[in-house]
Design a binder for these strands. Structure first.
Lengths: 164, 164
DNA sequence: ATTGATATGTTATAACATAACAACCCTATG
DNA sequence: CATAGGGTTGTTATGTTATAACATATCAAT
């Protein structure tokens, strides 16, 4: 459980208006759910809000603990189902490396995301990446459906401190 | 010293002399362990042999079951420690997407691997990839230490089965 | 023979994830 | 109205992946 309320948390590792960042994402989710005729229920909305609080990835059980504290559900399937819905709708991404979830930086476009994960502070920034395996895939005839791209390292802030 | 008789097709999706593939990998591991003065113990060697049997990724508990059947250890830490050693030495890669492990296609060079995972047959091919986040990282000042690149899709063989 | 380094064995538990079924809440239609 | 069906949530139980912590073994060097 990570209580983190700092606005120094960057989007692309840059300071930004996080409140705007949150409300924009929520509004987009509202619109998209309406357009797609899927239900943006209280549990689902709350899970997205929780993930939007910071740019760190949260584990399903972290999310569940928050839901539980608010009386919205206490058993793993509740959290996993909401997360699965949000991932399906493209509002949340799963970070394989961390077995954790993070709110999408831009749910309005369908995209194949890439991430930079700071191993010191846990911040995860979403980025755009080239298809790194296009060549190999083309040569071998492999048909790519989805590519996980997750870089791990140190964000600008954390490089300043010595971290062995 | 590059004894690469490599076709354009990544190992794993192409027919090849797998016996040679295995013994080459084992011989390389032997040499590197000797050179590095680390112990290539029976458990470690056997785990590598097990992973070398196919180009599919095995979970730690799959490996453990094999070890157990051969009287080489029955508790999770035995498998996880051997796997950690092999990963450290670069003889084995972890596939994050699958929470599983696969023998390295070419342990003789230090490399940052990328993978193509067939969702139908489970074959995993190792490939070379460009640094897909170099631009984003440079712009944001993120210092990349390691990048996970894992494409999922259909290998050439498994595409043929589809008849729509 | 003792020490120290390295590896393995074992217990216990943490952390992540899902199958299966019951209950609830709409709303569309008879 | 009622009631049937779809979608969502609640709950139980369990499956899967991973590690902390401590005990034992092995062996080389003092």
């Amino acid at each position: 459980m990570a209580r983190h309320d700092k606005s120094a948390t960057p989007l692309g590792f840059a300071a930004h208006d996080h409140t705007a960042c949150q409300s924009r994402a929520l509004a987009t989710a509202d619109q998209l759910c309406a357009a797609r005729r899927v239900q943006f229920t209280p549990v689902r909305r709350r899970v997205l809000e929780i993930l939007l609080e910071s740019h760190e990835a949260l584990g399903a059980y972290d999310v569940l603990a928050r839901l539980n504290a608010e009386g919205l559900g206490s058993k793993p399937p509740v959290a996993y189902r909401a997360l699965a819905f949000l991932v399906d709708q493209g509002f949340v991404h799963r970070i394989e490396r961390l077995n954790a979830f993070i709110a999408c930086a831009d749910p309005s476009h369908d995209h194949s995301p890439a991430f930079m994960i700071c191993r010191a502070c846990g911040t995860v920034a979403e980025a755009h990446a080239q298809m790194p395996l296009g060549d190999s895939a083309a040569r071998s005839g492999f048909q790519i459906e989805q590519t996980v791209i997750e870089a791990e390292g140190l964000c600008p802030d954390c490089q300043e401190v010595r971290t062995p």
